[in-house]
């Protein structure tokens, strides 16, 4: 059972790495959106430092959001989703495997490059640390919640911006605690409390999301 988990994950990662655009696009999107802000609000370092948590977190959130749409869509078009649904392995486990692979290939590069963008916005070291830690704990929640929405809209042809509308309201808590950790770090306050709350959110979504995603997929695939 767990060998299927790892085999599936390994192939999902392999596929993403072979199609460079699929993991580079969200990364580039993240970098470009963050670098648009100085043009929009002016290059004042104090202002940029003050709004940096919001800039970085919202840009990361949007980049992840655009990547989630591809989580199931290509598989639905090739008929591969049917094979997942027919597999004797628990569907939640297969979903978790796909979600984890997606996080490794689409979110991890973003997290790795985020200190560099933080540097461009003049973040001090302790805020950089808070940024990386909050992204590490928060982005899996975004992917887990997004997967439910992606599964629901997978069979809808003209879905447009439906997916962001469905799941963005659910992202509010992650956004609040993610940016909260950075704000606390900027005031030299401890951030462990924020990280603990984000860890709780992560555990909660780990408990519910893979199962609900599987259920949503069984419905979504027939539309």
């Amino acid at each position: 059972m767990f060998s299927a988990f790892f085999t599936l994950m390994q192939y999902e990662i392999k596929i993403t790495l072979r199609l460079a655009y699929s993991w580079l696009t969200p990364l580039l999107f993240f970098v470009i959106v963050v670098s648009l802000f100085p043009f929009a609000v002016g290059p004042d370092p104090i202002l940029l430092l003050k709004i940096a948590p919001g800039i970085l977190w919202v840009s990361a959130l949007l980049a992840i959001l655009i990547s989630i749409d591809h989580l199931f869509r290509d598989d639905a078009q090739t008929g591969y989703l049917d094979l997942l649904l027919l597999s004797p392995h628990p569907l939640s486990l297969l979903m978790l495997s796909k979600i984890f692979a997606h996080w490794l290939t689409h979110c991890l590069p973003l997290i790795i490059i985020s200190p560099l963008l933080g540097f461009l916005l003049h973040l001090p070291a302790n805020e950089e640390y808070a940024l990386v830690m909050s992204l590490l704990l928060g982005t899996p929640v975004l992917i887990l919640l997004g997967a439910i929405g992606a599964a629901l809209v997978v069979g809808i042809r003209s879905h447009g911006l439906l997916l962001p509308i469905l799941i963005m309201p659910l992202y509010v808590p992650v956004l609040i605690f993610g940016t909260g950790a950075l704000m606390a770090a900027s005031l030299n306050q401890p951030i462990n409390g924020y990280l603990a709350i984000m860890a709780v959110l992560l555990l909660l979504s780990l408990a519910f999301a893979p199962f609900l995603t599987g259920m949503a997929l069984r419905i979504g695939v027939n539309q």
């Binding site: 299927a4 192939y11 392999k14 596929i15 090739t78």
Partner: peptide, 20 residues
């Protein structure tokens, strides 16, 4: 139901993992 970027051999391996 094949993954376009995997090879023929890899597709069969993935399939046999999925069907346990």
């Amino acid at each position: 139901g094949v993954k376009p970027s995997l090879t023929v051999y890899e597709n069969l391996c993935l399939y046999s993992a999925l069907t346990a």
